[in-house]
């Protein structure tokens, strides 16, 4: 365990002074700040009717924005930037001549990336709450300060969004090892994003099998697809976990057997 903490620590040192940290901070702040601007500029249309919690609208707008293309692209970009540290500096050959198992190198990278993504959600929560109350103070008519957000629902959304992101994370973890040129994984993500929007617009049932759609499906489940549940997870989140296992196994095998830096 001590080894894992020490080695994950080295990954965090490597990421110092890189855009990856800014991406996490700005990424967590972007959507709450953007929605706040929308609320402040369109406040007249957003004054809640009696008995309605205005935080529900704030939540819906924020999470639909998050789930649309934002979270998958954030994860893709973060994964690319994270691996680009080694690719750009040509440091794989140094890492592979150190007394550390290749499997440990792989697991440290994966674990660090998962911590980064968790950090994104951890930062998102206070920023989102802070933005909501700030909007409430600036425009009391929106009554955001008179109500409280549904904290349980907020935590639940963060958790399910994290699970729904795992599939895309594993796919791009593999792609980022496979291709040194980060443009390729980003281009694949953009194409993936376009395809899921087309699948959504076309009400295609097979959208359940398309990992780039999972984040939005968590926030706004496609009504034309029967929602099967597996314990606390809807079908697409279960598939996200399966994609994660499948592509992690694939990238692990590639990293151990073939990848030489």
């Amino acid at each position: 365990m001590q080894n894992v903490i020490r080695n994950v620590g080295t990954e965090f040192i490597k990421s110092k002074k890189t855009f990856a940290w800014w991406l996490v901070i700005l990424g967590a702040a972007f959507m709450p700040v953007f929605v706040s601007f929308v609320f402040l500029s369109k406040w007249k249309h957003l004054i809640p009717q009696q008995g309605h919690n205005p935080w529900d609208d704030f939540t819906e707008m924020s999470w639909k924005g998050m789930g649309f293309l934002y979270t998958p692209l954030f994860i893709v970009l973060l994964t690319c930037l994270f691996f680009n540290i080694e690719h750009k500096n040509n440091t794989w050959k140094h890492i592979f001549t150190l007394p550390i198992l290749k499997s440990s190198i792989y697991l440290n990278k994966l674990l660090t990336l998962l911590i980064f993504i968790a950090l994104f959600y951890i930062l998102y929560i206070p920023i989102w709450i802070g933005c909501g109350f700030l909007v409430g103070f600036i425009k009391p008519q929106l009554q955001l300060t008179n109500h409280a957000p549904d904290y349980i629902s907020l935590l639940s959304l963060c958790f399910h969004s994290f699970i729904a992101s795992l599939g895309v994370l594993a796919i791009h973890f593999w792609l980022s090892i496979r291709f040194k040129n980060m443009i390729i994984p980003i281009a694949i993500a953009i194409v993936g994003g376009i395809i899921w929007v087309a699948l959504y617009q076309g009400r295609v049932e097979e959208i359940t099998y398309f990992p780039y759609a999972y984040n939005y499906s968590t926030v706004n489940p496609p009504y034309w697809v029967e929602q099967k549940m597996f314990g606390i997870f809807p079908q697409h989140e279960m598939l996200s976990i399966l994609y994660f296992i499948l592509f992690s196994a694939l990238s692990y095998r590639y990293f151990i057997k073939t990848f030489k830096g």
């Binding site: 080295t10 110092k16 500096n89 040509n90 050959k93 140094h94 001549t97």
Partner: peptide
Amino acid sequence: GSLIEQPSLYEHLSGFDNLEITRRIRN
């Protein structure tokens, strides 16, 4: 200890941080 062709260094980090990364891995 090895040095292959051009040294593999994290250019965005300080010399100390580069050493610290290897020090931690080598314990």
